[in-house]
Design a binder for these strands. Structure first.
Length: 675
DNA sequence: CGCGGAGACCTTTTT
DNA sequence: GGTCTCCGCG
């Protein structure tokens, strides 16, 4: 059944005040922003990719295109938000119809509107990785016929299923290409996948991959909706195109099929997400799929000094699989990058601390400094040293704010009330009650389902209002262990109170704390104060969302780099920033320290097994180098304490460092000075 | 069946 | 060092 699409009157063209930043090449930007679609912009690191896209959006609006005809897809929600702010500033106008965000967040918005078409209810909840794994685990248990210890674990399985979905390949083919040792398991894995899919559907939950896959299917299977969105999103702009996977590029192609107004921007040298299914060949083959595409290269770098750029060029030159491009610096000369050899990781940490303090003396803010590393645990010693020296730092840690146990416990209350079919949230809640564990939760879930399906058997419930969760809970509380009866009654009371205020997530959090979670925290965790503070913050954070649904979507979809900024405690005190290289993508800092450049750590020993991933490691190193504007320090320890076994391991200097010609770097050898 | 203690095992990157 | 798993006790 076709839908009506209301055409709004064209707005008169607005006055555009693009203020080309002084250092930028104005002609170049004008050429790119006015480029006819389809267009492919190959833009090197620091060449102002984001700025180009921002101007492009502003340009389109200036041409009289209504904001709701534009879809802006970026790598993080934060990037989209910043670009949209910038556009609003440039135009001094209302651009509220403009949609911008990650593929996942846009998928979420669209799927909520049409969930009925794919057999979901609009209040579906989103599973994070951990939840998805847990659900997968119980599917494995059901399919597994005998106790086979070599059966692939939920971790591996989650990766396989995700990769298959994102590359749009059948599972058997994915196994053949990437996990050949599991090829004989294809049939079992496929049946687990089938069960996993149906369990998600009954629970009315989606995982990350579903947000893309179901979005794609929705458009593919519903001609009217396809047409609706093809007409609505008349201009598509995609940032970081080198990191899109097959599913994402197919989505773009599907929506763009009618008008072909696509502008993609990316840099194949910065492709660092292939393990997630990203395929930088999407960029290479773009001109094949869009024969009319104009290709535009930006090889000027506005960010870094020529010395840093020379190093970047030297590093990436060893890679064979790429568009050839050579970045030229637009800035004046600076200091050579420095390679620092350290004895131990602690000495390396002291080096960073001391240098950071010196730079602060020289007038740099700590905000201008960043320490980058391959994996989260590489920053361990540095964190200790920074804390010891009292230097403020912020860190994008491995554990995300929203994935910590206490945040998830509280969120489970809100999620379950919004979506009572959410099995995982229910079980999580029930297991908080003393005396109820994994098996008990399974049984109580079955009991709850039964009360839900047959409310007539339980006179206390009102059949016309199946959402009276608290009374259903009371009804099936009989099946809870006797010693848990009091806690169970308390639980159902809390739920009934929460149902009253189910559209006020902030008040819900406070109520959950008052109703006993506070006490639970106190008894369970030694760092009870911190966790309580987190929840306090979460409650404040929730205030900004008009609906519970938006709050929950936000919890599931924002990355930790974004939450860092969102935390209300963001006092203006300058902090040195610690981050993995992956999470520093798209950012820039005056001074960058890249630490732990030891062979086996960076490049990581796992990646050296395959030649393509060895090239990707080098691209990652390239990304790290090109984050620096003025100064760059590359350091490595010779000895590193091996966590746990308390024996030290001698490290080899990273092969990335030995490959660098001596004349383009300075070498510092650390000596211990006396006070 | 829940829970606490003892041992094994692992350490890539994330929307 | 921290998490997950298994085992035996209550």
């Amino acid at each position: 059944m076709p839908r009506d699409y209301v055409l709004r009157p064209f707005r008169p063209p607005v006055e555009l005040h693009i203020n080309y930043a002084g250092e930028l090449n104005r002609q170049q930007y004008e050429a790119v922003t006015a480029l006819p679609s389809p267009a492919l912009v190959i833009a090197g690191a620091g060449s102002g990719k984001t700025r180009t896209l921002t101007y492009r959006v502003a340009y389109l609006l200036e041409q009289g295109i209504p904001p709701d005809r534009i879809l802006l897809l970026t790598f993080t929600n934060k990037a989209a938000k910043e670009m949209m702010h910038r556009v609003a500033d440039l135009l001094a106008g209302d651009i509220s119809g403009l949609w911008g965000g990650t593929f996942h967040s846009i998928g979420n918005r669209i799927l909520r509107r049409h969930s009925d078409r794919i057999g979901f209810k609009p209040e579906f909840t989103i599973l994070d990785r951990e939840d998805a794994k847990e659900l997968l685990k119980s599917c494995i248990e059901e399919v597994k016929t005998n106790k086979d210890p070599r059966f692939p674990k939920a971790d591996v399985l989650a990766d396989i299923l995700s990769l298959a979905s994102n590359t749009r390949r059948p599972i058997a083919e994915t196994l053949h290409e990437e996990y050949d040792h599991l090829e004989s398991r294809a049939a079992e894995i496929t049946s687990i996948e089938t069960m996993f899919t149906s369990r998600k559907r009954t629970a009315n939950v989606m995982d990350f991959d579903d947000l893309l896959l179901l979005w794609f299917r929705l458009l593919q299977d519903n001609q009217d909706l396809l047409e609706l969105y093809q007409r609505r999103f008349q201009f598509l702009l995609i940032d970081e195109y080198q990191d899109t996977n097959k599913l994402q590029s197919d989505l773009i192609d599907l929506i763009a099929d009618r008008h072909k107004n696509v502008m993609v921007v990316g840099d194949d040298s910065q492709s660092i997400y292939s393990w997630r299914g990203a395929n930088f060949r999407n960029i290479l083959h773009f001109p094949d799929r869009y024969p009319d595409a104009r290709v535009y290269k930006i090889e000027t770098n506005y960010r870094s000094t020529p010395e840093i750029l020379q190093l970047a060029n030297a590093v990436i030159a060893s890679n064979t699989n790429q568009f050839s491009k050579r970045l030229t610096a637009s800035r004046g000369s600076g200091a050579k990058p420095v390679v620092v050899a350290c004895e131990t990781a602690f000495e390396q940490a002291r080096f960073v601390v001391q240098r950071a303090l010196e730079l602060r003396e020289e007038g740099k803010s700590l905000n201008d400094l960043a320490v980058l590393y391959r994996s989260h645990f590489h920053a361990l010693e540095l964190q200790l040293e920074l804390t010891r020296s009292g230097i403020p730092f912020s860190i994008t840690s491995g554990i995300r704010f929203f994935e910590q146990a206490h945040v998830k416990d509280v969120a489970a209350h809100i999620k379950w009330i919004a979506n009572p079919t959410d099995e995982l949230s229910y079980k999580r809640l029930v297991r908080l009650i003393p005396g109820i564990g994994g098996k008990g939760a399974d049984k109580l879930w079955a009991a709850f389902r039964e009360c839900w399906n047959h409310p007539a058997d339980h006179p206390s419930t009102d059949a016309t209002r199946p959402k009276e969760l608290a009374s259903l809970l009371q009804a099936c509380g009989k099946r809870a262990p006797k010693k848990s009866a009091v806690a169970w009654a308390q639980f159902s009371t809390t739920i009934s109170q929460l149902e009253e205020i189910s559209e006020k997530p902030s008040s819900m959090i406070r109520l959950i704390l008052d109703a006993g979670y506070d006490e639970y925290l106190r008894n369970t965790y030694s760092n009870y104060r911190n966790r309580l503070e987190d929840l306090d913050q979460l409650s404040n954070y929730a205030l900004q969302f008009p609906t519970t649904e938006e709050f929950l979507s936000q919890l599931a979809l924002v990355s930790n780099a974004e939450t860092d900024e969102e935390k209300p405690s963001s006092e203006s005190e300058p902090r040195i920033h610690l981050s993995t290289i992956h999470q520093a993508k798209g950012l820039e800092f005056s001074v960058a320290f890249v630490i732990m450049l030891c062979d086996g750590l960076f490049p990581s020993s796992r990646s050296l097994e395959r030649s393509e991933s060895a090239e990707e490691e080098r691209r990652l190193f390239y990304v790290a180098i090109t984050r620096a504007k003025d100064e760059l320090y590359l350091s490595y320890p010779l000895i590193r304490l091996n966590a746990g076994y308390s024996n030290s391991v001698v490290q080899q200097k990273s092969r990335f460092l030995t490959d660098i010609p001596d004349e383009i770097i300075d070498t510092w050898n650390l000596r211990s000075g006396s006070y």
